[in-house]
Design a protein around this nucleic acid. Structure first.
Length: 136
DNA sequence: GCCAACGTTGGC
DNA sequence: GCCAACGTTGGC
């Protein structure tokens, strides 16, 4: 079981769009590192859904319902997509600011490699971020 | 809108 | 295979 974080610009594809749709195909990835992460995802792996640019925060949890297959938006066989479905909306969003402020989360890619759009998280990191959504 | 960080491209 | 130029992402 692995844990991931994916980014989306909310004005392009927001958490609410995703929930409305029920199942979302994660297409358009054109970065090898992100692609490799997509390819490593397994059914039922959990994925944090992060809003970049606007909000700049983790908003919900999703899971993998279909493992990597050819990206239908291109003929280029180098690129793959996965399908995700929403699991739960976090009761409170977890901002990048609060992630940066947590000494236990200094190694997450959001901080170390902010441009990577599909990132892997350690189980502890995933748990810490989710627990922040339930604080107070 | 600016700019830093990073990835990609192409000339040599 | 190096590196400069350029494009893109994303935080602020």
């Amino acid at each position: 079981m692995n844990y991931w974080l994916v980014k989306s610009e909310p004005f392009k594809y927001s958490w609410d769009d995703f929930v409305k749709q029920g199942v979302g195909t994660w297409d358009g990835v054109r970065n090898y590192q992100a692609r490799n992460n997509l390819a490593a995802m397994k059914i039922d792996d959990l994925v944090l859904f992060y809003h970049s640019n606007e909000g700049v925060e983790v908003v919900g949890i999703a899971k993998i319902v279909k493992e990597a297959y050819q990206d239908p938006t291109t003929d280029d066989t180098r690129w793959v997509v996965v399908d995700l479905t929403p699991v739960e909306k976090l009761p409170k969003t977890v901002t990048l600011q609060s992630i940066k402020a947590d000494v236990r989360l200094q190694d997450v890619s959001l901080i170390r490699q902010s441009r990577l759009s599909v990132q892997q998280l350690k189980k502890e990191e995933f748990d810490i971020i989710v627990s922040k959504a339930y604080e107070n």
